[in-house]
Amino acid sequence: MIEALHLRKTFIRSVAVDDVSFQLRKGEILGLIGPNGAGKTTTIRIVLNILKPDAGEVLYEGNPFSEQSRNLFGYLPEERGLYRKSRVLDTITYFGCLRGMRKPFAREQALKWLESFDLARESNRKIEELSKGNQQKLQFIVAVVHDPWLVVLDEPFSGLDPLNQVTMQEIVAGLRNAGKAVILSTHQMDYAEKLSDAICLMHEGKVLLRGTVPELRKRYGTNTVRMEFSGDGSVLATIPGIKKVILSQSGAECELADGETTGRILGILSQKLDLRKFELVEPTLNSIFLDVVHKKNSPQSSGRVH
């Protein structure tokens, strides 16, 4: 288990991370999501002890950071790159040794991983000769060759073609099944939604939301309904209790006012329209995010002149 407790980090002109807490068990994936500049990378760097927090601490299995902890981390940074002129197998072995492995063992493991990615043939080539997709796989191997229990993946899907994105999803899920604690940082909400056991949504250095995906859906998904009908949809806007209407070809999506129940609305609508379908919308992480950010910003933005 890894626990981040009230992390705070300020840079010269800005607060990058402000009171960030979360916990993560082995065999779980924590989706660290948020827009660019939300403080995800800084949080990751604190967790990996690349940066020291100004306040708060991270506990690894209940213990504070020690130099030995480093050997248990695996890290795939956001921007990729390895020593272009070096050879594939040598590079993996080097990083393995740097995480405390003995050289022969590191080599053996490196070969195993290369084989599992179907890259064994490339093991003596220079990295710059590999395709971009293979370079990414290589970088992933570097992150996991030493069998870490905490794997941090920063934007693992960026720059991959659709085929490789699917492969990467399988790999990430595989890490969870292998019992690793995985932190998946991304601004691609759909992947986070699909893969994460828990979500930590960050915005402007703060944690806005935390919880499992179903929890979040439950919390944020109750006031939007989607319907299909025939008839004039314009009546929807006249119904009290419906806050917002988005009409489409065959139906509409409505946001209900706070405190409104779906049952009452369904009762009213069934008299006015010929409903074919009426369902509660499971909100996407994306819409939750937009919703939360919007709510957070609105008190401030209302004061501004547009």
């Binding site: 760097r45 990996l48 002890n49 690349i50 480093r70 050997n71 981390f73 890290y75 940074p77 956001e78 921007e79 990729r80 790159g81 390895l82 020593y83 272009r84 990083f95 740097l98 995480r99 570097v142 992150a143």
Partner: peptide, 12 residues
Amino acid sequence: ANRIVEILVSAC
């Protein structure tokens, strides 16, 4: 430039 340094300083 290629951010290897991030991996390195997480390892040492």
